[in-house]
Every structure is written in C-alpha cells, then in structure tokens.
Amino acid sequence: MFSKKTVMIVGVILLIAVNIIILSVTSTRYPSFGPGRIAIALTAPFQTAVVGTARFFSDIWQRYFMLVGVARENEKLEHALRRSREENHRLEEVALSNQRLRQLLEFQQKTARRVVAAEVIGKDPSPWFKTIIIDKGLEDGLTKSLPVVVPEGVVGQVIELAGNYSKVLLVIDQNSAVDALVQRTRARGIVAGAIDSGFLFKYVLRKHDVQVGDAVVTSGLDGVFPKGLRVGEVSGVVKRTAGIFQEVTVMPYADFETLEEVLVILNPPTHPQTEVP
C-alpha cells in the first residue's frame, strides 16, 4: 500500500516529534532516579580527587611563584633594613666622634698650648703592661717624653717613636710616675700606676690633709706634664700608726678602657730655671 521509502520518512518524522515532545517535557523538571545517583556517586570521588590534585598542584605552582616573590621582597626589605641600621649606626658613631672631637677642640683652645690630635690604633697585648699605639709620630713633630692628655685628664707620655706612629706609656702603668698635688690642700706626692687598676699617690706626708673625693692635679714639677692637669680623684686614704707617709689611692678621671682620641702636647713646660742674682 505505501512504499518503503514513504514508511521510512514517516518513521523519522515521528521519532523527531517524539524526541521533541520528550525533551520539552523533561526540560521542565529535574530528573532524579536511581542509576543517575549511582553514577554520580561512583564518579564524583574520582572527580574530586583529580580536581583536588590538579588544584593542589596548581596552588603549589602559583603559591611557589608567589612565595618566591614574597621571599624576594622580604630579602629586599631585610637588606634595606640592614642598610638603614648600618647607616643609623654609622651616624651614631659620627655623632659620638663629633662630640669627642668637639671636646678635644674646646680643650685644645683652652690649653693655649701647641697640641696635635692623635687616634689610638692599638693597645698593649699584655694585661700586665699599659701602653697604647697612636697614629702620630716623628713626622708630626712628636718627640720622646711628650705628655699625652684628654679633656678628662692626663693619659701618659710618649716613650717610643716611629715615622707616623708612637708608643705611649699610660699613667696607669706601674712604671709610670707623675708629680702631682692635691688641689684643695696642695699636698704633694707622686702618682704611680697600680698593677690592678687606678693609681697610688705615693710619698704624701702623714701630716697633710687628704680626703676621699679630693681632686689630684699635676704639679708641673716633673718637667713632663703641664701644671694643673686633672689626674684623678682620691678614692681611699689609709694612715697607718707608723711611717711618715700615708697610703692614698686615686681613681683616674680619664677612662683608659675607652680611649679613642688623645692630644699630644708639643710644647710641654720646661723646668723653671732659678736665676742666681
């Protein structure tokens, strides 16, 4: 009755129509049925694992670069901080050095003597002996026995010279001796270095009044140190029942542990000549 071709065309048209109808019906509501759930339940964990792993690696990759960037930035910041600290430290040093040099300059102007400033470049290798090396020598006009001072007080005297360097025997060395006076009472004695620390004020007569806290100054009679330079402060007085002298200990005004710059007096006093009429 119908040809085979006609039947085929009608069949295809029907299939398309049914398909359209089904699609139009299913598109209006969400289908949820057993096999679908099972499929999801089976595949989802793998999906989760794969996606999770991918994300993990992706995160690592991204964070690595991010961390590298952060690390670099951190390094830069640390470097900048270090430079700032160094700069700060340098400026503090400059400020302190400036302060010290100002003091030296003021002292230099007050003393009205020809002085040369020198820097301490080395200290005695032995704790038993007290010397320093300064960066001024023969070429700067220094000679042996010149007094070395700081604004706080006497430091020592030049004992050896080289072209641009000198060795200074500190007054706290046990081989050092300075003729000195108690400022208040004019009691005279010899300030000698003590082996442990500080000075011993030797040969002060018992009859002289010396008290703790008295200032000791140079007498100028040793021919090395100018008169009136500060030496130290009396820290102890012992008057024994016997003997003609009293035992006096003196704490130096100058801090020998932190000596950095000193002044060498180029025209020290000479012994006053007594004129015979």
Binding site: D124, I159, D173
Partner: peptide, 8 residues
C-alpha cells in the same frame, strides 16, 4: 715585634 708593641 711584640717587645716593640708592648710596654713590657
């Protein structure tokens, strides 16, 4: 050298 540097 040490003798020269030291006050010993």
């Amino acid at each position: 050298v040490m003798d020269n540097l030291s006050g010993a």
